[in-house]
């Protein structure tokens, strides 16, 4: 019981404090690739602290929907994280079918983020919202199909046991479908977190951007909540993907936490590398890549049905 409570406490502490670090790592990696020194690793924390101290400006078009959306987005991310085990430790909440709740909580966040964008009455933000919801609807089947593959492999109906060491039953029998699901989820991770090649978190160039444009009108603490919420989303989806990428099996609990943190940092570095060495896709290619993600997961499913 004691170790269980301790692991829940560590889970929550990591969840609350680690996500902005991932953004820092990604930015640092990109800076290194570009030959710059780049902002300090902890810059996202400074940014958040600064934003929380600031006042905010609201356009007269906006309503309570616009002000509620950032909070709902962040809360959904934090809630979804309760179902995902970090490393080999149990998830705080686990019940039969929680994977659907996990996926739909991200839907809830998307609903309100996009709605808030429309609340500004600006063509820019409408554009971003339209793209976000259209691409999001294609990412959802990929995520669900991948989860079904894992459910089938583990014989479990809830997220925690399903993700617990999927590699343990042998590389040769399951490796192919796990690799396919991992590839599919990597695409989903990049798309859902608006990373290159889908989106560019750094520009406001309207021809290609999706997520950044939706939050153009937010300022001050609300914008801080949005930034923080985005990093939580990256953290949660990253933790999900990490289970497929690190076939380490059971370690000593303390060592496993260190392994998890190192894995997440490695994942952030990989995202930074991908962002540095690829170009943004033409926008009309994005749906194709997302459908590809679903197809990869579907192939993964076909391979495990005998």
């Amino acid at each position: 019981m004691g170790t269980y409570l301790a692991s829940i406490a560590i889970h929550e502490i990591l969840l609350l404090f680690m996500p902005p670090l991932l953004l820092g790592v990604i930015n640092k990696t990109k800076a290194v690739f570009a030959g710059r020194t780049g902002p300090p690793l902890l810059q996202p924390y400074y940014d958040l602290a600064r934003l929380f101290r600031k006042g905010s400006v609201f356009s007269s078009t906006t309503t309570w929907v616009f002000r509620a959306a950032p909070a709902i987005g962040l809360a959904s991310g934090l809630l979804a994280a309760q179902f995902v085990p970090l490393g080999r430790h149990p998830a705080p909440v686990s019940f039969e079918g929680d994977l659907f709740l996990f996926v739909y909580l991200f839907g809830l966040a998307r609903f309100f983020t996009a709605t808030a964008a429309l609340d500004t009455g600006s063509a820019f933000e409408g554009m971003g919202a339209a793209r976000e919801v259209s691409f999001g609807s294609l990412a959802e089947p990929a995520l669900i199909l991948g989860l079904l593959v894992l459910a089938r492999l583990s014989g479990s109906l809830s997220l925690g046991p399903m993700l617990h060491d999927p590699w343990s039953a042998g590389w040769l029998t399951r490796g192919a479908s796990l690799v396919l699901v991992a590839a599919s989820w990597a695409i989903v991770l990049l798309a859902e977190n608006c990373r290159i090649p889908f989106d560019d978190p750094n520009t406001h160039l309207e021809l290609t951007m999706i997520h950044e444009v939706m939050v153009l009108d937010h300022s001050g603490p609300a914008f801080g909540v949005i930034l923080y919420g985005a990093s939580v989303k990256l953290f949660v989806l990253g933790a999900l993907l990490l289970h497929l990428l690190f076939p380490f099996g059971q370690l000593d609990p303390g060592l496993d936490w260190i392994g998890f943190v190192a894995g997440m940092v490695f994942l952030a570095i990989s995202v930074g590398v991908v962002e540095s060495i690829t170009a943004r896709l033409r926008l009309s290619r994005v749906p194709q890549l997302l459908v590809t993600a679903s197809v990869l997961s579907a192939f993964g499913m076909l391979l495990v049905v005998r």
Binding site: F111, A114, L118, V133, G136, S137, E140, P141, L145, L148
Partner: peptide, 17 residues
Amino acid sequence: AAALALIGGLALSCFVK
């Protein structure tokens, strides 16, 4: 299940709209 997920995503776009 994949169809249901797609339906959910598209319904979301439709009601945001």
